[in-house]
C-alpha cells in the first residue's frame, strides 16, 4: 500500500485553500523529519480572508445570541469527538482546556448583554439604555506556544458577540490550526466567521496593522511588533488589545465576559417614555 499523505490547507471562507502565492513551508517533527508542507500565506491571502470574513460576518452578527451559543457548543462537540487526533499534536490537557473554554463562551453568548449593557438614569422623560454591537472583523495574532488553546482563547471573545475573525496561527506548530479548521467546517459555524491562516508573522503583520477593514487586533506581540501594530492601527483607527508573550493561557482570567467587551461597540439609545 502506498501511504496517502494529507495536504494541509487553511480554512478560509468555509473552504480549504492553498496560499494564492502557491508557497509552502516545511513542517518538521521533533527529530527533524519532514511531516508536511504548510501554506505560507501572503498579504493577499490576508486580504482575501478579510473579504471572506466580511461576507460571513454579517449573517453571524444577525443570528440570535441563543443560536450563536448553540453553534459554539457544537464546535466543542466536534473537537471532543476528535480529541484523540488533536492530542497527537498538543497535550491532552490543552485540548480539554480548549473544549472547556469553548463551552464557557457558549454559555456567555446569550448572557453577556445583561452584564455589558445597561439602563442609564437620565433627568428627562426618556428610557436611556446602552446595548453592545459587534465591531466587525477582528485580526488575531496567535502566539507560537499553546497553538490550540491560545488561538481559541483569542478567537472566542471576539466571535461570541458576532464579530468575525481572521487569525494567523502559530508558525512552528501550525497543525492544530489546520485540524481546527477541519472541525469548524463540520460545526454549523457559518463559513467566513473564523478564518485561519498559516505563514510568516513578519511578512503579514504590517497588513494586519494597516488593513482598514480590520476593526480590531488581538494577540501576542513583541515590543517592536506592538509599535508597528499600534502605528498602523492609529492610521486605520482600530482597537488593539495585545498580551505579553509570557501569558498563562490556562489562567481563569480568560473566562469572563470582559474579553467580550474588548470587541464590542456601545450604542446608547434614547427612547421617549409614553404617558
Amino acid at each position: 500500500m502506498i501511504p496517502i499523505t494529507k495536504t494541509p490547507k487553511c480554512y478560509v471562507g468555509g473552504s480549504f485553500i492553498r496560499s494564492e502565492s502557491g508557497r509552502v513551508y516545511e513542517m518538521r517533527g521533533s527529530s527533524g523529519e519532514f511531516l508536511a508542507n504548510i501554506p505560507l500565506c501572503s498579504r493577499k491571502d490576508l486580504r482575501n480572508a478579510v473579504e471572506a470574513a466580511a461576507k460571513g460576518g454579517a449573517g453571524w452578527a444577525k443570528r440570535t445570541p441563543y443560536n450563536r451559543a448553540q453553534i459554539l457548543y457544537r464546535i466543542a462537540e466536534m473537537i471532543e469527538s476528535r480529541a484523540a487526533e488533536m492530542s497527537a499534536w498538543v497535550p491532552g490537557k490543552e485540548v480539554r482546556a480548549t473544549i472547556d473554554r469553548i463551552v464557557h463562551f457558549a454559555g456567555w453568548a446569550d448572557k453577556y448583554e445583561q452584564v455589558l449593557g445597561s439602563v442609564n438614569p437620565v433627568a428627562s422623560p426618556h428610557f436611556n439604555f446602552t446595548v453592545t454591537e459587534p465591531m466587525g472583523i477582528v485580526g488575531i495574532l496567535a502566539p507560537e506556544d499553546n497553538p490550540l488553546l491560545a488561538l481559541m482563547t483569542l478567537i472566542l471573545p471576539a466571535i461570541t458577540s458576532g464579530n468575525s475573525v481572521v487569525a494567523l496561527a502559530s508558525k512552528n506548530a501550525p497543525y492544530p490550526a489546520i485540524l481546527l479548521g477541519e472541525m469548524l467546517a463540520v460545526s454549523d459555524l457559518p463559513g467566513g466567521v473564523i478564518n485561519l491562516l498559516t505563514g510568516d508573522r513578519a511578512e503579514i503583520l504590517p497588513t494586519f496593522a494597516t488593513h482598514e477593514h480590520i476593526r480590531a487586533l488581538a494577540g501576542i506581540a513583541t515590543r517592536e511588533e506592538a509599535v508597528a501594530l499600534q502605528q498602523g492601527a492609529s492610521e486605520s483607527v482600530k482597537r488593539v488589545k495585545l498580551l505579553a508573550p509570557d501569558t498563562d493561557w490556562y489562567s481563569a482570567r480568560f473566562e469572563s465576559p470582559y474579553g467580550i467587551r474588548d470587541f464590542v461597540e456601545a450604542k446608547t439609545v434614547w427612547h421617549p417614555v409614553g404617558s
Binding site: R47, V50, A54, T207, T210, H211, E212, H213, G232, S236
Partner: peptide
C-alpha cells in the same frame, strides 16, 4: 495609500 481599504469608505 498603500493600505487595503474597507468597502464602506
Amino acid at each position: 495609500s498603500g493600505a487595503y481599504q474597507a468597502p464602506y469608505t
